[in-house]
Amino acid sequence: MSEVEDTLFENADIDIQALPNVATSNFNPLAGNYFWVIFFRANLIFLALSIGFFIFLLQSGEVNGIKIWAYLIGGFTAFWLFLNIFLPFSFRKKGFSIRERDIIYKSGLWWTKIIVIPFNRIQHCEVQQGPFSKIFGLKSLTVFTAGGGSSDLKVNGLPDNKADQLKEFVLTKITNEDE
């Protein structure tokens, strides 16, 4: 934990410095296969968009001259290369952690984000499998909080059985916490 000039507040009943730190907890990486899901999805979308764009340009007939075409194709290739270099790095930054009383998900290479939901604030959870993930035998787990939307948390790229296990685990946690 980085240095803080002074304490959070006086007369705390616990030592705040000694509380477990979220950022340094043990993060599980997502299943390696999931990279290919992201990879294929991103490339497919990119391919579809660029094909659409070029067909539109060809059909409109407004772009003339070999030079402009060279620039356009060069630009698209550069972006495509950048995308595929960026993806593995950003993939490595994704991870989740299950602690005794909460679940953590982090992501982001440059713009980082880390979200924590305690089990006793989870409303329900859901296991999903998209067509791509199905090929690789992966599932995703989403946990929902009350009021919905922005504070929900989704863990992608979990191996089939692990996703179901995790869901069972979270479910027992959230029903026990309520008593």
Partner: peptide, 17 residues
């Protein structure tokens, strides 16, 4: 500061949990 943010986060989690 990230230090303050982490303290706020840890304390919030402690109080919730």
């Amino acid at each position: 500061s990230i230090g303050l943010a982490e303290h706020l986060q840890s304390y919030a989690l402690y109080k919730i949990e």
